[in-house]
Amino acid sequence: MQHGGSVLAPDAELAVHYARELFGRRQESVRLWIVRRADVHDLADPDLLDPPLDRSFKKPGGYVMRDKLAAARERSGRPKSSAGERRAAPRSSPDGSQ
């Protein structure tokens, strides 16, 4: 989701039409949300969005789940789901190591 831009229109119905023409006529959108400017609440405070202290522990990157999941699957005797296989396949080397 991203901000497409703004339109000037006399009311919501025409705003939808204009948004479609300005931001959807070249197949660049699959869905458009149109809201009145007055209904957009802005949050841009860097102290709230980009805290000065270390918050890396709130990011998921440090948690490696792959080995735990593989062990759990082994215990349950159930193979990987097909979706999981599709995701994992490109990262597997020929001998099966990760």
Partner: peptide, 11 residues
């Protein structure tokens, strides 16, 4: 009559 309508009618 207005820019947005210009785009819409042209399209």
């Amino acid at each position: 009559p207005l820019l947005e309508e210009d785009v819409a009618m042209s399209s």
